[in-house]
Amino acid sequence: MNLFTALHRIRDEQDPSIAFDFSCRSAVCGSCGMLVNGKPRLACRTLTRDLPALIQLMPMPVFRLIRDLSVDTGVWFRGMNGRIESWLHEARPFDPTAPEERMDQATAEKVYDADRCIECGLCVAGCATAAMRPGFLGAAGLNRIGRFVLDPRDTRSAADFSVLSTGEGVFGCLGLLGCHDYCPKDLPLRERFAYLRRSLAWNLLGLGGRKR
C-alpha cells in the first residue's frame, strides 16, 4: 500500500475532514509532497511497507499551510516562476507557415531533462536556505533557470538572470544538497548548480557562453 491509498482510507473510513492534496497518483502532478517521518516525500510513491509501523506525517515547511497536510505550493511556484520569467524568451516571433527551428536530439534531451521538474516542492522543503531566507529560489527555481540557459532557443544566458548571482540565487546554496537526495524525479541538481555557477563565471568574466 502506498501513502496515497492509506490516507484515502483514513479519510473514507475514519475522518472525512482531513485535508491533503493528491491528483495524478503517479508522481507527475507534484501535488502530494509531505514530510514522512521527517523526510520530504511524495506520498503517491511512498510504500507503507518501506516504513516503520509508526508513520508520522507532517505538512511541508516553507510553504504556507492551508490545513492538515495541505500546503500552498502552487502560489509559491507561481511567484518563483514569475520572478525568473519562466517562459521561453524567443529571438523572433512565431511564423505559422514556416517549419520549426532545428535542434539536435541530444540538446532536446538535455532541455527535457531539466524541464522534467514537477514543482512538487520537496527540494524546497528539504532546504536549509529556503527555510531561513524567504526569497531563495530553491533548487526548483535554479533548475528552471538552467532549463532556459540550456535551451538554445532562449536568448538568455546565466548572467541575464540577475537574481542568480545573489544570495537568493545559486550562491545562497549551503551545499547540503538535501534537494538532490529528495528529488522524486532524480534530477541531477548538484550538476545543475555547478553548471550555473560555471556559466555565470564565464559570462561575468567575459570568457564566453553568452548567447548574445
Binding site: 517562459w87 521561453l88 524567443e90 512565431f94 505559422p96 514556416a98 517549419p99 520549426e100 527551428e101 532545428r102 535542434m103 539536435d104 536530439q105 532536446a108 534531451e109 532541455v111 527535457y112 524541464d115 535551451d151 532557443r153 532562449d154
Partner: peptide
C-alpha cells in the same frame, strides 16, 4: 501541425530526427 510548431516556438523540447 501549426499547433505542434507553435508549442515548439513556446519552448517544448520535442524529440528530434536523428
Amino acid at each position: 501541425p501549426v499547433a505542434v510548431r507553435q508549442m515548439a516556438a513556446w519552448g517544448v523540447p520535442w524529440n528530434r530526427v536523428v
